[in-house]
Amino acid sequence: MNILISSAGRRVSLVRAFQKELKKLFPNGKVFAADANPVLSAACQIADGHFKVPYLSDSTYFKVLIKECQDNDIKLIVPTIDTELLMLAENRELLEENGITPVIASKEFVSKCRDKREIHKFFESHGVSVAKEFSKKDYQLPLFIKPIDGSRSVDTYLIKDESELTDYHFENEKLMFLEYLDHNEFNEFTCDLYYGRDHQLKCVVPRKRLEVRDGEVYKALTVHNKLVPYIREKLAKVDGAVGCLTAQFFLHNENDKIYAIEINPRFGGGYPLSYLSGANYPKWIIKEYFLGEAIEESFDIWEKDLLMIRYDDEILVHGYKG
């Protein structure tokens, strides 16, 4: 019963979490990691085994992936980056025909998550407020600009003065002009949600973002606030959602205003804080997909007010020739 963390990159903590939980239930189980350049991937170096895969744009990607999974007796794939989600969802049947199960939401739900306008419609259909999108001919400053299919804060802009707007902002059809939610008035939370194979919400852990580098949280705090019952009510069941989903919300400092920003149907870079607080999603995935056990709702199992401060560490590879 082996597991693959795909596009592993720097996800050392996630690999270690799956290793720890898998060994408890399957002592001989291994956690593999895959990357386009595994020698330079920290997560690949600490995994039980690793292998190289082509870039997602390569036509041989799935041929190589399936062969490596079969050669290494890998039965489960856990994705980690946005760009691989839709491809895995679209090729679910191909993978399952070869004895491999991707822990990934349905193609329909992944498609919504990858399009910021579609995920806004999804939130609104569940009675959840979102930031207003302006027409590029009629907008109010300050405003926030981001691409409909972006990730990791790439190509985002806070515009406070008309002079900061350029032809690029107006002509790029992918860029959305959005109502700005002031960080002086709102706190930003990344919430780790777990959905069982029945598409029912089992757990919510809000993480307050204290410091972010290159789109990934470096300092964060678990907070048991009004987001927990709010998300539990509004998003109790989501068709197609399974496993860990990472959702961003803004919560007003003084009133009950809550705005949803986006959902990424995968483990987020800051999930290790939720795991260390007691929200054991790797164990739940192993139990659901390997043992066929249903997961019960567990909204109060995690430690609140737990602060995570991340730091850089080193992994040495001896004899590296380049």
Rank of each mutant, 00 (worst) to 15 (best):
L4F: 05
R10V: 08
V12C: 13
R16Y: 13
L22R: 12
V31S: 02
F32L: 12
F32E: 04
A36N: 14
L40K: 12
I46F: 10
A47N: 05
V53T: 08
S57M: 13
V64K: 10
I66P: 07
K67E: 14
K67N: 13
N72T: 06
I74C: 10
I74T: 09
V78E: 11
R92N: 12
L95D: 13
V103Y: 01
I104M: 10
S106L: 08
K107F: 04
F109R: 11
E118Y: 07
H120D: 12
K121E: 09
K121S: 10
F122G: 02
E124A: 10
E124G: 01
S125N: 12
S125I: 07
V128C: 10
E133G: 03
F134E: 00
K137H: 05
Y139N: 02
P142S: 02
L143H: 01
I145D: 00
G150H: 13
T156E: 05
L165S: 03
L165I: 15
L181K: 08
Y195K: 07
V204G: 05
P206A: 05
P206Q: 06
E211A: 12
R213D: 07
H224K: 00
H224A: 02
V228T: 10
R232S: 04
A236K: 15
K237H: 15
G240A: 07
G243V: 01
F249K: 00
F249Q: 03
P272I: 06
L273P: 04
A279K: 11
Y281H: 12
P282K: 02
K283P: 00
K287I: 00
G292Y: 14
F299A: 07
I301G: 11
E314L: 15
H318S: 07
